[in-house]
Structure formats: structure tokens, C-alpha cells
Design a protein around this nucleic acid. Structure first.
Lengths: 103, 103
DNA sequence: TCAATAGTTCAATTATATCGAACTTATGAA
DNA sequence: TTCATAAGTTCGATATAATTGAACTATTGA
């Protein structure tokens, strides 16, 4: 059922995580995923509705490759979850602080 | 004596700061500036010696525009200081945590 | 006066983000 | 079964950002 490659938590890099979170769109996606707690489809998590599908897809790819989210495919939708435990294990306190500081 | 424009601390953005720190070279520069405590020239702070001067100069420009450093010119050298107080006032705890988590 | 040093700016190449359009896959209705 | 629809990805083109060497500016010191 898993259709995407996700890095092991040991492979998460600080530069990769910061670069991924440095984009307001992606930070917004991460916040929404955290708020929802569970899985969420890409469209459900889209920061703004007028963004091109391909752009949104690209943001999810970057978040995946940075190790911030895990994506599985079920039916026609993709289910994305925030990898909170992995992120916190690798970079304790970082995610929480950035989300707190974000406008 | 001041030759560069620096944003007011209120103008620092989280996205800008994260993007600036997301580059390993720039994060290294910031760490060196913090370690030195006081001013430091660009060459003194260069992460790796084989990098092109223009590249180094560009990194300093990005750090300046993000509001992370202040640059003044004195004689033939540029003096760069980390804007710790401004950064901490705007984003409490962020700089310290990122530097702590960096490899 | 003039060579040397510290940085910046410029031009060219390369890499990355954005968008619309085309494509793939799965669902659900006729 | 068939076929339209919906969710995402991939592709091609354009625009913006990073890297480099070369040329330029400004200051120092011999």
C-alpha cells in the first residue's frame, strides 16, 4: 500500500528540514497536518485553493524527501501524516518551536 | 561608517531566517560569528577556503538581507556581527536551538 | 605613487520553483 | 462493462536564485 520512499529518521538533515519549513506554503501544510492529527489528503491540506495542482504536488514531494511527512496512497487519495515522532527524535523541540513562532 | 542597509528587527521574517539558516555554509558562518562574539571579517568567517569570493559575498548578502547579521565597513575589511538580540527578540529560542541541533 | 588586499558587481552557466496541459490510477454511476 | 470524474504526478516551458571566474572599487601601506 505504501507507494513512496521516505527517508529513515536518522537520515533527516537539519538543512533539509529548515529548507522545507522555510517556505510559508509548506509550513502551513505542516501546521494543518499537525492540527488534524491523523492522515489528510493533499487537497484537504492545501494552504490556498488557487495554487496549481502541480505546485501543491511539488510541495508535498519536498516535504516527503525532507522526511517531514509520510505519504501513502489509498484509493484515489493520498494520505499524508506528519512524522512528528521521527522529527522530534532527530531534532528535539525544533518543530514545536517553529510552529509556535510562525505567524 | 555604516555602508549597508539592515532590516529593523520587526521586519525579520521566519521564512527569511529559516531560508538563510537552511544553507550549511551560512549556518556555519553564523556559528562562527556567534563563537567569536564580536566582529569578524568575511574571510575570517569563511566556512571553507576554496569557495569563490563572490559566493562568500553572496552568502553574506543573504544573511544581511535576512536580518541575521549587521555589516559595517572599516578600512579595507568588513566587520560582521550576529544580531543576536534582535533575532532573539523576534524569534525567542530559535537561533540557540538551531545552533544546538546543527552537526 | 602604486602594488596588494578585501569585497562587490557582472556575465554566463546551472539549478530550482511555478504554471498549465497531458497523463495515470481508482472510484462510482449508467 | 464502460466511461466520466477526481486526485495526484509528470512534462515542457518560463522565471528566479545560486555558483563561479573575471573585472572592478576602495583602502591600506610600502
Amino acid at each position: 500500500m505504501v507507494q513512496f520512499v521516505h527517508p529513515a529518521k536518522e537520515d533527516l538533515t537539519l538543512a533539509g528540514v529548515l529548507a522545507a519549513l522555510a517556505d510559508p506554503m509548506r509550513l502551513d501544510i505542516v501546521r494543518r497536518l499537525k492540527d488534524k492529527g491523523a492522515c489528510a489528503s493533499c487537497t484537504d491540506t492545501a494552504p490556498c485553493p488557487k495554487m496549481a495542482k502541480s505546485t501543491l504536488s511539488n510541495h508535498f514531494r519536498i516535504l516527503r524527501e525532507a522526511g517531514l511527512i509520510r505519504t501513502t496512497k489509498k484509493g484515489v487519495e493520498h494520505q499524508n501524516t506528519l512524522r512528528e515522532e521521527d522529527i522530534n527524535a532527530r531534532f528535539p523541540g525544533l518543530l514545536k518551536l517553529i510552529l509556535k513562532l510562525a505567524p
